[in-house]
């Protein structure tokens, strides 16, 4: 049917909240290429988890079709369950079982064993092996995350679904986790990863920006930032909060928001900068600096949200 590992074709899904129906995802379509790390970037409530559940055959879409490795998620769910690995949002581990008990349970669930696919998980397993007798509930966030990944990989899945694997995990563990994912790519496993952290988008091959159940944009991270339409400038001064308020009041400023050490300012045209600087000086800003800003996925996301 389809050669792509993941095909999403016009998927919609709503769920009832009280008396109303809320759309989790609305008419979403995209394709994930073989061996790709595909990022689903968006805040909580954007519809990421619903999409994951539809693709992992846990939910039936109201409309549209989805295919994993050519199998329809509704009709061929048996086939799909044999070939996908899934790490749900909250790392699904048994807190009262030890690391190795968790691993062997999930291995037997897929009729396999740790030994059988050891080469695939060894990089991850080596990191958690020192704690293999420890109960999963007593592991740190980063270790739990690695154990959950190990469990999801243990049957050598063709497609790996990771729903917010880095949420609530500190920056160091997050970096390590992404390194592990890039290594897995060598094993030609296709991965779909969701994250609310926009800075992680640049670690994916392609990303979909998703908000309120709609896809804002799909492309490589580089292309997405290249497509940024307006001039972006980074401002700073001695009084950052006042600077923010002052900039937000100016007519030729489209948007101004804190970004790292600077305020990112979206303008209609580069030529406005000297005039803005003059106005700011007149308002008593000192040590004022403005330089062309580096566009990030987050800037693009916010631009899409403003539309």
């Amino acid at each position: 049917m389809h050669k792509s590992p993941i095909v999403v074709d016009g998927i919609s899904k709503s769920y009832p909240v009280g008396k109303e129906k809320v759309n989790a995802v609305t008419n979403i379509s995209f394709i994930v290429n073989p061996g790709e790390i595909f990022g689903l970037i968006g805040p909580d409530g954007a519809g990421k988890t619903s999409l994951f559940r539809i693709l992992t055959t846990l939910l039936i879409p109201d409309n549209g079709n989805a295919y994993v490795e050519g199998f329809n998620t509704v009709n061929d769910y048996h086939e799909i369950r044999k070939i996908v690995g899934y790490m749900p949002g909250r790392f699904s581990l048994y807190q009262d079982l030890s690391v190795e008990e968790n691993l062997s349970f999930f291995a037997t669930l897929f009729n396999t064993s740790l030994e059988e696919n050891y080469d695939l998980v060894k990089d991850i397993y080596n990191q958690i092996e020192p704690f293999k007798k420890r109960r999963a509930g007593k592991l740190s966030g980063g270790m739990k995350q690695k154990l959950a990944l190990c469990c999801a990989l243990i049957h050598r899945p063709h497609v790996l679904f990771l729903d917010e694997p880095t949420t609530g995990v500190d920056a160091v563990s997050r970096t390590e986790f992404w390194t592990l994912l890039r290594k897995l790519q060598d094993q030609s496993i296709t991965m779909m990863v969701s994250t609310p952290y926009m800075d992680e988008a640049s670690l994916c091959d392609r990303v979909a920006l998703i908000q309120n159940g709609n896809i804002l944009d799909i492309d490589t991270p580089k292309e997405i930032t290249n497509k940024f339409e307006n001039p972006l400038w980074a401002f700073r001064s001695d009084q950052m909060y006042k600077l923010l308020l002052d900039l937000q009041q100016m007519d030729n400023v489209i948007a101004c928001y804190p970004f790292g050490q600077h305020h990112h300012v979206v303008l209609h045209q580069d030529q406005d900068v000297p005039e803005i600087l003059d106005q700011l000086k007149a308002k008593g800003q000192t040590n004022l600096k403005a330089e062309p800003g580096i566009v990030t996925i987050e800037d693009c996301f916010m631009q899409q949200m403003r539309k």
Partner: peptide, 13 residues
């Protein structure tokens, strides 16, 4: 509640 049911369901068992 734990979410482990999701993983169990997404397995061939």
């Amino acid at each position: 509640e734990l979410g482990t049911m999701e993983v169990i369901l997404v397995s061939p068992i």
